[in-house]
Design a protein around this nucleic acid. Sequence first.
DNA 1: GATACTATTTATAATTG
DNA 2: TCAATTATAAATAGTAT
Lengths: 223, 223
Amino acid sequence: MARKKVKLSWISNDSARKATLKKRRKGMLKKTKELSVLCDVKACAIVYSPDEYRPEVWPPEPERVMRVLSSFKSLPEMEKSKKMLNQEGFLRQRISKTQEQLQKLEKDNRESRTKLLMLQGLDAPLPAAAAAASSAVMGQQEMVQTPADWYMNVNPMMMMMTMNNNHPNDMINPPPLLPPAPHRHQVAQENVANVAAPMQHNQYAGHDEDQYVDPFLDSFFSP
Amino acid sequence: MARKKVKLSWISNDSARKATLKKRRKGMLKKTKELSVLCDVKACAIVYSPDEYRPEVWPPEPERVMRVLSSFKSLPEMEKSKKMLNQEGFLRQRISKTQEQLQKLEKDNRESRTKLLMLQGLDAPLPAAAAAASSAVMGQQEMVQTPADWYMNVNPMMMMMTMNNNHPNDMINPPPLLPPAPHRHQVAQENVANVAAPMQHNQYAGHDEDQYVDPFLDSFFSP
DNA sequence: GATACTATTTATAATTG
DNA sequence: TCAATTATAAATAGTAT
């Protein structure tokens, strides 16, 4: 959106793509925030970026996810949710398939190089990438090496569902029966008319949403 | 962003707020799509609007997003899920690295082939694997045109936890085991709202992971 | 209320340091 | 590579139909 009109297709230039990602990701999250604030709606944006183990997310309060989840409580079919996919299995399967692909690719690569050698008679050493690739795929040991604190900070999924802004919810959630949350008092009263909407997905509005954990959900997510 | 600088606070005027919501929501989803296409990253946006039973979502396959929601059970708050999170986190990281390697390898492969061509002056057809890799890396146009199809091949878990290039993702996500669902092809790329829950009647038949729709999540998007 | 239409503000592609 | 700058494309607030 500047200097030149951009065509909507993948940016092949690595550095250019990276730069664009950085700019636009920021812009997108900002837009999300603005929409949510201006119109008082639940909005959520997630962007996973290459080489980053955790996604950029808006809104920044992952704990609000619980409220969104609690809106599901009334839905039927809950029992069947046990059938939920085994995520780890999914990933493992993917890795296996990727390995296959990689192996084929490596084989092709080797064949190409062999031809090259025969034709030009010089020894082009395998790029580090190729060797690293196989070890990366195969090297399960690294799993053990994963820093303990690494995953502690990782919670892409949990952030994913977070949403809504405080404004309406604050209105919707009168001072809890529980210990009051002081920060809520800054909410303006003019917004009364607006409070209806955000209500629609929250059945536990009367509780302190930052602390309350729906017992049903709790059990649902527990083994 | 026009006529007057907007103050970042809730719009009290009902009609004005509604109008803004409509405009900005559209804009935000568009931005999400653009970012995703231009930089080839997994990006997701969800907007709940008042008086609308289902949220506007990008990408157009909400069931993919839904699966992300299911991963919420990995919340660190859930003590027993931490272990699993570790596993997933590791796997995700591993996949990211593998994808990097794969990209490098693929690039290298291309270079070798270029040399080959120059030297032997004949066009040796790409072996299957390399061709697949190539199209996976280069085939951005198709993705833009039929995001639905594209996502058919994307593992939901990958979508939510990984981020990175599609190129590698395509490699990592081989074609679905099940035959494609033709009805998805009618999904209009631009009309996000209409495709909110195309899978809602696609039951758990087959229980293939790429097709399976969790009833819990599915019902979320159903009125 | 939904468009359609600008005048502006924003976002950002290209460029520079 | 990265941040800052700048010129331009996009988004959109207010308005009219």
